[in-house]
Design a protein around this nucleic acid. Structure first.
Lengths: 180, 180
DNA sequence: GAATTAGAATAACAAGTGTTACGGTAACAA
DNA sequence: TTGTTACCGTAACACTTGTTATTCTAATTC
């Protein structure tokens, strides 16, 4: 009856996402995505109502990407929030453009920081419970204090103003917890 | 001999800076600045070689603006780094667009965080000396720890994920210092 | 008042954006 | 083999960007 599609929704989203990773969210334009996919701009607008919709999907994919990143991140030590924090800081270093999109852009208002961190498994709640079980009197307050610290390190690494090693960073986080 | 200028360099820079404050750095385009000044785009290119140069001047003006902001900020309490930190966080809340330009944008690499904070009066050194005089064993390390905390709060307030009152924030900073 | 000349307005160029109209093409049904 | 029809490439529209060429204007000097 009809012609077979040669450009899939997957091709488009995948490439738009990789472009965000490599060149930043601002470079996801209709023509640039088309060039990278190797087609005209037409298939994009067949699949997505408009660019706004594609951008929204890239954002959603970035959220899932971060959550997978944390799931695969090596879990070391037992100090609450430290693994989550280490993953967050490493993510900011390695995936600067995705970090900006998720946690600093105007887009970032779509999901709260807490919502993204918590993910499907309730990562934050899990850490809060762990802290509580370890005798922390105010685990929510501890989370906030720790996270200010962690978010600060992550954001600072974007501009090159933070350059401690992973080992030093972990030490700092553990001290920070101990001092609470 | 010649015609008198009706659009000054001051008109242009002042308006470009105010546009950055109100609408963000990205809205400083030749035409938009011209509309706001009330002239054509021509006087801009008489005074500045190109837009890049104007943007550079806006950035420099933002640096000075922040430093004045801190100089006029009410100095309360004696805990080292706390006044500098409170000013920084308040600045992020009140001048979101300038904060982004100074401390998070690609532009931010022009001057290091430390350089901007320190200013002409050596604000950071001053606080480090104060800490030292008050018996702090590792004042540089203290500065770094405090500043991670402070930068985290400032950046979080941009996306609406930080909403503690000034009093609560100050308390946190003082505790943070005490725990070091 | 006339000539000179720098300042500024108008308009254009070239490149880039999102989006849409049109027409050719390829795959399947008859 | 012939239609049908969804897919996709080409080209265009309308808009925005930085920048520049041209033309008009106004202030000063003679």
């Amino acid at each position: 009856m009809a012609r077979k599609e040669s450009v899939t929704i997957r091709d488009i989203l995948e490439n738009a996402f990789e472009m965000t990773r490599e060149e930043g969210f601002a470079s996801v334009t209709a023509r640039k995505v088309a060039v990278r996919v190797g087609c005209s701009t037409q298939p994009i607008f067949r699949v997505y109502k408009n660019m706004e919709e594609l951008w929204g999907e890239v954002y959603k994919k970035a959220v899932l990407f971060f959550q997978d990143y944390y799931d695969l991140f090596p879990q070391m030590g037992t100090v609450p929030f430290s693994n989550l924090g280490m993953a967050y800081i490493a993510f900011a270093k390695e995936e600067k453009n995705l970090f900006r999109l998720l946690f600093l852009s105007e887009f970032a208002a779509r999901k709260s920081l807490y919502e993204i961190l918590n993910g499907k498994k309730g990562n934050v709640l899990c850490e809060i419970n762990k802290a509580s079980a370890m005798g922390c009197a105010n685990p929510q307050g501890m989370f906030m204090r720790m996270w200010l610290f962690i978010h600060g390190a992550a954001c600072m690494s974007l501009t090159g103003d933070y350059d401690l090693s992973d080992a030093e960073t972990r030490k700092l986080l553990e001290q920070e917890y101990a001092n609470g």
